[in-house]
Amino acid sequence: MKYSNIAVGTDGSDASLKAVETAASLARAYQADLTIICAFYNNSGALFHAGQGDGPTGFPIVNQERAEEYLEKARQVAAAEGAEKISVLARSGSPVEVLVNVLAETGSELLVMGNRGVRSLAGRVFGSIPTGVVRHAHVDVMLVNTDGHNPPH
């Protein structure tokens, strides 16, 4: 199978940057387009009117400005890994909803994401972002094991 459009989610964490690094490596190998996605909440948005901090399942809640910063860092990681055709998208909404919607919009055939939260108690009780995406995405999803990872270069 050859992927021509690969997407990856980031929340600015070192673990998500490991997923970006993996996605960029795949994009380089397949000569594919790479779309890096970051969900954010508007200050007038739904989740506790939050700008930053941690949400109920321990995932960072970011505003649009912070999302743009995370995407720029992720773009640098992807470029250093050799991905050539990189685009970034910051979208307002829940991470699962944003990731699934962007997959459809971009025609991505593969979503790469870290496994953060999959094994946590909160992830088992409330559901993790990776688990939610796997349930709703209609494309291949690759979970990168980011437990005990080395930060990207």
Rank of each mutant, 00 (worst) to 15 (best):
A80C: 06
L99K: 04
T106E: 08
F48C: 02
V102I: 10
F40D: 03
A39F: 12
Y41H: 09
R28W: 02
L34C: 09
E72N: 14
R66V: 15
V100L: 08
Q52C: 12
A90M: 05
K85W: 00
G51S: 04
F59I: 03
K18H: 13
I36M: 02
A79H: 09
F40H: 14
L99D: 01
H49P: 09
S108N: 03
A79P: 04
V96S: 11
A32T: 04
R66W: 07
T106L: 13
L99V: 08
K18E: 13
C38I: 02
D11A: 09
L99F: 04
L110S: 12
E68R: 15
G93A: 00
G107E: 00
L17C: 01
T35S: 07
A23H: 10
A50I: 15
Q52V: 12
D14V: 12
S44T: 12
A67V: 13
Y41Q: 14
S25V: 09
A32S: 05
E68W: 12
S13V: 13
V20I: 05
C38R: 13
E84C: 04
L47N: 13
G12E: 10
A67T: 10
A79T: 08
V88M: 08
G53S: 00
S44Q: 13
A24K: 03
D11R: 06
T35P: 02
L103Q: 01
C38P: 01
Y30I: 12
Y30N: 09
I36R: 00
L47D: 15
E84A: 10
L26M: 14
A90C: 09
F40R: 08
L110R: 03
P95L: 12
E81A: 15
T35N: 03
L99E: 05
K18M: 15
A23Q: 10
T106M: 14
T57Y: 01
R91C: 08
S94T: 09
G55E: 12
E68Y: 15
Y30Q: 12
L26P: 06
A29C: 10
S108L: 07
L99I: 10
G107F: 05
T57Q: 00
S94D: 11
S92R: 11
A15Y: 01
T22L: 02
A67R: 12
G58K: 04
Q76M: 15
R91P: 11
I37C: 05
E69R: 13
L34E: 02
S94M: 04
I36P: 05
D54C: 01
A23C: 05
A19R: 03
A15S: 09
V88Y: 11
I37K: 03
V98H: 04
